[in-house]
Write a protein that binds this DNA or RNA. Structure first.
Length: 659
DNA sequence: TCAATCCGTATC
DNA sequence: ATACGGATTGAC
């Protein structure tokens, strides 16, 4: 251990004929390899020939452990601390930097917060290069429209705009009133930042919301002053738009979760719409959440931040309660005038017992409400929790869930007459027999949107039935008598607002064994109910005694979030505490935990078996020790990967699906 | 005595 | 990961 010296070996690449650059010949860089113990800076020599291209933030190729890998240069310095000889940078990738000082700091902060590698985060936020896109020149922007803002009814709204205009770090949880044109509100805030000479970054959950905000930004800023970043653009267009931001040609960006890292310089406003939508949670390591990325970015840059939504998450509520953010809500009178009239149907207990009949035998109130709205020439929105026809079946006699005889996957029905089909392996199971009672008949336990649409078609003959969900999502529908059946998150916007909404099968949402079931249910209901005309009826098919139902009836997302947060505090769950889920083979977990430098107040829960031969261990610390926990996990994981411990463990901080 | 193989370690 | 030095093993 004491007399180890660097291995003397011939340089992997010929250095002959290569001269280091005269000034700051050392590039300090992150190599793009996925190993935690290599997540640090390495020094390379910059050849004089690459002096101009290898700059802070540029992408290069270097020879690392014998092979060519991508790397990101963080800085150029005069000398190295490294004892051995330095290799040369092989070549530059592209001619301009991809990291800015600000995004570099953000990538590092995100890596630290979620116990991940910097390069993994960089890959989330920097699109792959497309050479041709580097040469394209953007069109000049069109005329700047008159700034028209509509903050009517939001008491703290004007002061928030004033703060953005003055470049102050105002942070707000903005609970949009139902029926409000929220894309316009976000676009106006972006315009205020723009007029203050600053940039803006808006993050939305999905492509449909992106299209709406994109259009609203065009209305607020004219053409050519913002870009929309989405996954389905194709690499060339994606990189072209991203470069326009990086070059400062365009300073306002809207996009899905990766846009949280958009290289907008001098950000004046960061915004996220509907932070409770789980699409904001990144599914790739290190699993950062877009809301929390923006919270970090706001703290790093001092830019204003707004979490806007119809509902409110416990996380947003915590930012309010600890004084980090302030509240923007509609004034009482305005809210009362714009909120729908929500009624919970009393006979839902009966419906829950026989969900197959729910759509056909609508509760009297729902039936009457639908008929009246259609008669008045308005569309009716019907929200159904599940897609498909009958996504879940059980034995008609003893209610044993129907499973595939081959792979044990859940059986579903694709139409009224067809044989049940396995949702996992797609095999048909025509002669199903109940393994417990031998019964042969199946009944629906969950009714999907397709069957609901079919039955509503029978119930309201002559009325157009439109469906939205799955891979067939409607962006909007006209203001005309129609029944619109949608799964949660796929509700089309209706021009003048729906005349009524039915939120069916609430029990299916509420009874999920998930800590966030109540919060998530209220979020989905509120987003659907926000699409009806002011004062229009909304019928929710759930027990009126349930807190989420009461919160919807009273239209009180803030009160519900406060209650939710205090429950999390009682259970000692995030966001009140910080938790890490560590998944992997049992041996790997115990290896990791025995090397873990446990932070103050660490609690371990489990491990419990998950998946095939893996286990899951939960670690919990007080919130203040969250950074210590992430750091300790990262260090332990690095130790393991350095010692070539084969089985990798997955580390997730504050994962959404706890329990 | 030399190669084939395993281990441990560093990767600028 | 992957590539290397050094130690270890096994057959001539």
């Amino acid at each position: 251990m004491t007399t180890r010296r660097p291995a003397a070996r011939p340089a992997a690449a010929p250095t002959a004929g290569r001269e280091p650059a005269e000034r700051d010949p050392v590039a300090r860089l992150h190599v793009d390899v996925p190993l935690p113990h290599l997540d640090r800076l390495f020094d390379y020599l910059v050849p004089a020939t690459l002096d101009a291209e290898v700059t802070a933030g540029s992408r290069v190729r270097v020879r690392f452990a014998g092979r060519l890998v991508d790397a990101f240069v963080l800085e150029r310095v005069a000398r190295t601390e490294h004892e051995g000889t330095l290799a040369f940078v092989e070549r530059a990738v592209g001619t301009e930097p991809v990291l800015t000082a600000e995004t570099t700091a953000l990538f590092r902060a995100v890596a630290e917060r979620w116990a991940g590698n910097v390069v993994d985060v960089v890959r989330l936020g920097v699109p792959s290069r497309h050479a041709r896109a580097e040469t394209s020149t953007p069109k000049p922007p069109g005329a700047l429209p008159e700034l028209a803002t509509d903050l009517s009814g939001y008491r703290a709204g004007p002061s928030f705009h004033a703060a953005v205009a003055e470049g102050r770090a105002a942070r707000a949880v903005w609970t949009m009133r139902p029926g409000d044109d929220w894309p316009a509100r976000l676009a106006e805030a972006a315009r205020v930042a723009h007029d203050a000479g600053r940039g803006a970054v808006l993050v939305v959950p999905d492509a449909r919301d992106l299209a709406r905000v994109d259009a609203a930004l065009t209305a607020a800023l004219g053409t050519g002053r913002h870009v929309a970043l989405s996954a389905d653009l194709g690499p060339a267009e994606r990189y072209r738009r991203w470069l326009a931001l990086r070059r400062g040609v365009v300073r306002v960006a809207v996009g899905t979760r990766a846009a949280a890292y958009a290289p907008v310089a001098d950000v004046g406003l960061l915004a996220i719409w509907d932070d409770g939508d789980d699409l904001h949670a990144e599914p790739r390591a290190p699993y950062p959440h877009a809301r929390d990325v923006l919270v970090l970015r706001s703290a790093l840059t001092g830019s204003a931040l707004v979490l806007a939504a119809h509902a409110r998450t416990a996380e947003a509520q915590q930012l309010l309660e600890n004084g980090w953010a302030h509240e923007i809500v509609a004034e009482r009178g305005v809210l009362r005038a714009s909120a729908p009239r929500v009624r919970a149907v009393a006979d839902d207990v009966e419906l829950a017992r026989d969900p197959a009949a729910a759509a056909a035998r609508l509760p009297t109130l729902a039936w009457r409400t639908t008929r009246e709205s259609l008669a008045a020439g308005h569309a009716v929105l019907v929200q159904v929790p599940r897609g498909g026809y009958v996504p879940s079946l059980a034995c008609a006699r003893d209610r044993t869930p129907a499973r595939c005889p081959v792979c044990s996957g859940p059986l579903a029905a694709a139409s009224e007459r067809s044989a049940p089909v396995c949702r996992w392996c797609a095999r048909a199971a025509p002669g199903w027999t109940c393994p417990t009672c031998g019964g042969q008949r199946l009944r629906a336990t969950v009714v999907g949107s397709a069957r609901t649409a079919e039955e509503l078609g029978r119930a309201f003959p002559g009325v157009p039935i439109r469906s939205s969900g799955g891979d067939h999502v409607l962006a909007d529908v006209g203001d005309e008598a129609a029944v619109v059946v949608a799964t949660p998150g796929a509700e089309p916007v209706c021009g003048g607002g729906y005349g009524a909404a039915l939120l069916l099968d609430g029990w299916a949402l509420l009874s999920r064994p998930d800590l966030r079931a109540g919060e998530e249910t209220l979020r989905r209901w509120a987003n659907a109910a926000a699409l009806v005309r002011p004062g229009a009826p909304v019928i929710v098919g759930a027990d009126a005694g349930v807190p989420a139902v009461q919160a919807l009836v009273r239209w009180d997302p803030g009160g519900f979030a406060a209650r939710e947060l205090s429950e999390r505090a009682e259970l000692d769950f995030p966001p009140v505490s910080r938790m890490a889920s560590v998944t992997g083979p049992a041996a790997a977990l115990s290896e990791l935990t025995s090397a873990l430098h446990a932070p103050e107040g660490l609690q371990t829960i489990g491990p419990v078996p998950v998946g095939h031969d893996g286990q899951r261990l939960l670690l919990r610390v007080p919130r203040a020790a969250g950074a210590d926990l992430a750091h300790a996990l990262k260090t332990a994981a690095a130790g393991r990967s350095a010692r070539r411990s084969a089985d990798p463990v997955r580390i997730q901080l504050d994962p959404l699906e706890l329990l």
